[in-house]
Design a protein around this nucleic acid. Structure first.
Lengths: 325, 325
DNA sequence: CTGAAAGCGCTTACAG
DNA sequence: CTGAAAGCGCTTACAG
């Protein structure tokens, strides 16, 4: 079913059909009526491929996430959706699973002109191959940084927030700090380790770091168990994600270690997970929705003005004290 | 950058460029070389819109979810992704948020020929308007049923599983059953209520049902609090989702009610959440990954053979006993 | 092994 | 207010 057939059915030209479809120019009421009828009768749906090929506009944004199951990501995505919708844009979500092949495949939607721009929440900037795929298409990196700062970026000051966590532990008299981090190809992971480390070094306090194999509940459990196997055992654990922290709390409880009496735990993100654990989790709350909204704002600016420069936006974090620390 | 320019750069025709791009037909090695060079030099990326418009094939599947943050959905999506990838398909995820406008907008990707088929996990079949948008494009309904069975469907026997839960409570000597359900436009919600109810009616036992305002942790907390306000208070609660059950457990613990001594709780889905609560959650485990994989299998069958009939696949569930019941 | 040409389904100046 | 025609960037018979 094409615009051609509708034109034939209604006895007008394709141009006229296109005009009523897009509410452009003026069409004699009678003709508009006939076209509308033909459309309804034949249940016609415009071919988006043809339209977008012609107009070079899709009004679609690609969002690449490494793992939609991560509650923080899900929250950011909600912010992205809200802001995009407000501006007449549709979101296409791609779950990269941190897989380079899959990321490449998703990015073809960008280079292939199916979407007008991309928001990534992945350690993309580390991957040279993918960067050339993006070329200079509109791109915003969310909750992640770019070394070279050639990309627009929106997030919080991870280093400062993590330093703050270290300060909390110190102020509470904790002595043996540990950290559960993960994949350092993520720039934010590096920053958080650095911030946490900074303050401890200044005080001359030691730090043990365990790297979770994946950003998951189980990953947190395993990492915590490795920490528990050490001696002396840490009395404070900073996990770079609430998901990991939830795993850590579980591992501690299985091991019969009291939180926070024997080991204090602080997470990162401020996701709903933090309320589900027992004890509930102290955490650094990120303004996830706002991060998503701001990313869209930056991206649209870039889409509508190819010359608009890359921009680094830093939003405010907040420490949420609960029972785990 | 188009195939035209590459042709010009390499000094061949567009047909030849297309041939090397698609590895079709044979091309003189020397020419292939020149084309490849031109492509590399100019960082050329094929325009997917044009290609798909021409071939009427996208190798993309649309997946519509009401809420990606739901761990069960996330698991099903993983199954979908795995099976799709194995068959050379790419996934586009759309988060409908159960919003009909947004669902409509997403489905335009289908009617607009951007994707070859759609897998929904939403109460779509209840929405006549959307159904006509789908027309007779390839469509599989996942973890949800269609009254009229005109759509392919894959899920478990919700009624049987829920009946089993009731049986567990009865066998444990529970007297005052309650259920936390949600939106009955979802067919599975109806089925679960029915199954749970069936057995209780046979025994002449009463049942209180609370409907959560949304399928979320907070929704579960609120529903449980409403149940606690009743008297006599229930001594067994069946929640139709682990997320709701997690909320229920939290509300009980805040109210100082012991689980399972005073109130037993059983959830549904078998997601990782069930391990995060204290006590850990007894639940009906759905074969989420398998559901996703099977949905893709059915969908691809339909895509590759428009005549293949609608098919109802029912997979096995499993009761996982933990400490909450 | 290669190229000229048609065509996928749209939109958009342009001329009337 | 309307239609004929060009063109978006591809693929694919077809003829050579």
């Amino acid at each position: 079913m094409s615009i051609q057939k509708i034109a034939r059915l209604a006895g007008v030209s394709v141009a006229t059909v296109s005009r009523v479809l897009n509410n452009l120019g003026s069409v004699k009421p009678e003709n508009r009526e006939r076209v509308l009828n033909a459309i309804k009768e034949s249940n016609y749906q415009p071919n988006l491929l043809a339209r977008q090929l012609r107009t070079a506009r899709s009004n679609m944004l690609l969002v690449m996430v490494s793992n939609i199951a991560n509650p923080f990501c899900a929250d950011v995505v909600k912010g992205i959706e809200a802001e995009a919708e407000k501006n007449g844009y549709r979101i296409l979500l791609c779950n990269s699973g941190s897989d380079i092949q899959r990321s490449r495949s998703s990015l073809q939607l960008l280079s292939g002109k199916m979407v007008d721009g991309v928001i990534t929440m992945d350690a993309l900037s580390a991957l040279a191959g993918l960067k050339t795929l993006i070329g200079d298409a509109p791109w915003v990196q969310c909750a992640e940084y770019d070394e070279a700062s050639t990309v627009s970026t929106v997030g919080i000051d991870d280093r400062e927030a993590s330093r703050f966590v270290a300060g909390q532990f110190v102020a509470a008299g904790r002595q043996r700090m540990a950290m559960i981090n993960h994949d350092l190809t993520y720039k934010y992971a590096k920053q958080r380790e650095q911030g946490f480390c900074d303050l401890l070094s200044e005080r001359g306090m030691p730090l043990q770091v365990e790297y979770a194999s994946e950003l998951s509940y189980q990953g947190g459990i395993d990492a915590m168990n490795r920490l528990l196997a050490q001696s002396p055992r840490p009395d404070a654990v900073f996990a770079v994600s609430d998901t990991l922290a939830a795993g850590a709390i579980r591992a501690l409880s299985e091991a019969g270690v009291k939180v926070p009496e024997e080991v204090a735990v602080i997470g990162f993100d401020g996701s709903e997970l933090g309320q589900m654990t027992s004890p509930q989790l102290s955490t650094i709350e990120q303004p996830s929705r706002a991060i998503g909204r701001e990313a869209v704002t930056l991206l649209l600016k870039r889409i509508n003005d190819a010359c608009s420069p890359a921009q680094q936006t830093v939003l405010q974090w907040k420490f949420v004290a609960r029972m785990s620390s």
